[in-house]
Design a protein around this nucleic acid. Structure first.
Ligand SMILES: [Zn+2]
Ligand SMILES: [Zn+2]
Ligand SMILES: [Zn+2]
Ligand SMILES: [Zn+2]
Lengths: 130, 130
DNA sequence: TTATTAATGTTATATTATTACACAGCGTTA
DNA sequence: TAACGCTGTGTAATAATATAACATTAATAA
């Protein structure tokens, strides 16, 4: 259960594009694809992306500078994300494992510090490319 | 125990700079700092960085586009890295936890896939900023 | 209403990273 | 020796990613 956010016009346009994409989208690919809808400048895209990331509707794949819609309602609160990335076809999948999130949320570093926020990217070959 | 690599001139200059830095360095900060040693172009920096990452002498902090020397001989082989990042002072620490690396190396996604390569970035507050 | 916050539009610029091409050094091997 | 492959270097140009600064408008709250 997570808080509903009423997306603004630009946020909604950009979220819809990302949400229906089978693969993570880069900021300038998004820009190119929404120009017909009146979004003309990089900053308009980045502002919407920032907000969408903040509220957990999308995540940034840091190693790829690309954005993917969240497919896991729980990380909308915690910003604790995990992905697998295929090094051949670049397919990205959000990992939803209770065991993994529990392990990471409870992990303590050598100072005894716990972290509720993290980003984990696994690299390997997907089913198809194996 | 890991293979020794004889670094080239540019690689050595750039590694030395990163290794003695208390914080992760960005590519153009590195460029600025090695210009007195004759390294004049971004590409010379990026080529050295690519190689140093490849052989595990340094790691890239993906969320910060910055590079840090490895302080953990084991990830020089596996490219399985974990860091904690302070959201206030930006201090970055490489995490060296046998438990964590074992857990992640043995983690299986829902297709039963295991991953020997991963990058994990924890975010929180460091001791000083807490 | 007034005030405040969030979102937008626009231009310019900063930051991060790669392409393309020419060449030098070194070990292998024909 | 010469030919080759491989790694590294030097240089210029450019591509890709992201933010600063400023003006304006829309939505929300007091
Ligand atoms: Zn998610
Ligand atoms: Zn694949
Ligand atoms: Zn390391
Ligand atoms: Zn700190």
């Amino acid at each position: 259960m997570h808080k509903e956010h009423n997306l603004s016009k630009n946020q909604q346009i950009i979220f819809d594009l990302i949400d229906k994409s089978p693969e993570p989208l880069k900021a300038y690919t998004i820009l190119f694809n929404v120009q017909k809808k009146g979004i003309k400048a990089p900053l308009q895209v980045y502002r919407a992306l920032d907000k969408l990331v903040e509220i957990g509707k999308i995540h940034k794949i840091e190693s790829r500078n690309a954005f993917i819609a969240c497919h896991n309602s729980s990380c909308q609160v915690a910003k604790a994300t995990a992905f697998s990335i295929c090094e051949i076809c670049e397919k990205v999948t959000e990992i939803s494992s209770a065991g993994l999130s529990k392990y990471l949320a409870n992990f303590k570093d050598k100072d005894g510090m716990k972290y509720s926020k993290y980003n984990l990217e696994f690299f390997g070959l997907c089913k198809k490319c194996r």
